[in-house]
């Protein structure tokens, strides 16, 4: 035999894993590489250039859609995180009380229903309201995004709360802190990384959404993803690659920060 018997080894698993990692990144890397293509094809390489980044930057539709995406994501993620924090405080660290199970189910409901179904439901509901009120602004998209962001923001906050030592707040109360002071001085500082993680998760989720946005948006309310979806029906130029690359960069940045926050949580 020669080498030591490794109890963890399974024949072929490492090979399949390597194939997976390769297959996961090859398409993404291709997209990024062709974003720098000098030619106007996304298949034939004609040299390095930043022209498609310039073109995207000067494309009003792209800029408008990007700003709209960021607006919606900021508002939705902020509201979702605030209400999710409150909900997490209300649903953790207590003995079961009437309605607790209902709350869990209700808050997680957007995760249970296929996105297309929610999208259709919102299309129907909001089109009624548009007729009644005459309002057709970004409010609909923000409301829809807030709703489906809540469970995502809720998850890390709740996890953080449940891992928190309850006796810390008991200790604060023992040391003359009123409930509000105990929250402000002990609970909140310890919960903060969870809230931050929830905020970023919600932000990415909102930024990425295609289906619900596609159904809810009124004319001229394209977000970056729905703009891109529309472009796929036309002749595709590396401009899409350039937009995707920037988008990718933002996502990676947020995920990296998120990753490090959750790591820090484990170490504490």
């Amino acid at each position: 035999m020669g080498s030591r018997f490794d109890i963890r080894r399974q024949t072929g698993f490492t090979a399949i894993a390597m194939i997976c990692f390769f297959a996961l990144y090859l398409p993404i890397i291709t997209v990024v590489v062709y974003a720098f293509n000098a030619g106007s094809s996304i298949a034939i390489w004609e040299g390095v250039s930043l022209r498609w980044f310039y073109q995207a930057w000067n494309n009003n539709q792209v800029v408008d859609a990007s700003i709209r995406s960021l607006q919606i994501a900021s508002v939705a993620a902020t509201i979702a995180t605030i209400v999710a924090t409150m909900a997490a405080l209300a649903t953790t660290r207590t003995k079961p009380y009437p309605g607790l199970g209902f709350k869990y189910a209700f808050i997680n409901q957007p995760l249970m229903v296929p996105e297309i179904v929610t999208a259709v439901a919102l299309l129907i509901f909001f089109s009624r309201i548009k007729i009644w009120t005459g309002y057709s602004g970004l409010g609909y998209l923000m409301a829809a995004h807030t709703a489906f962001c809540i469970p995502f923001a809720y998850l890390p906050i709740r996890a953080r709360l449940e891992n928190m030592d309850l006796t810390l707040e008991v200790a604060a109360a023992d040391l003359y802190a009123t409930p509000w002071k105990a929250f402000r001085r002990v609970t909140f500082p310890l919960l903060w990384p969870g809230i931050l993680a929830g905020l970023m998760l919600a932000f990415v989720i909102s930024l990425d959404d295609v289906v619900i946005t596609e159904f809810v948006k009124s004319g001229g309310q394209d977000t970056l993803p729905t703009y891109m979806l529309g472009q796929f029906r036309r002749v595709i130029t590396p401009e899409i690659n350039a937009i995707s690359t920037v988008f990718l960069l933002i996502s990676i940045l947020i995920v990296t920060v998120f990753f490090f926050i959750s790591r820090k949580k484990d170490q504490e």
């Binding site: 605030i82 909900a87 209700f106 409901q109 229903v113 439901a121 129907i124 709703a147 809720y154």
Partner: peptide, 20 residues
């Protein structure tokens, strides 16, 4: 405390499903 989250989800997710 949980009311805002429940209301938003009801108005922009669960409620419309009933209309479907």
């Amino acid at each position: 405390l949980s009311a805002p989250a429940l209301i938003i989800i009801f108005l922009a997710a669960t409620g419309p499903l009933l209309i479907v």
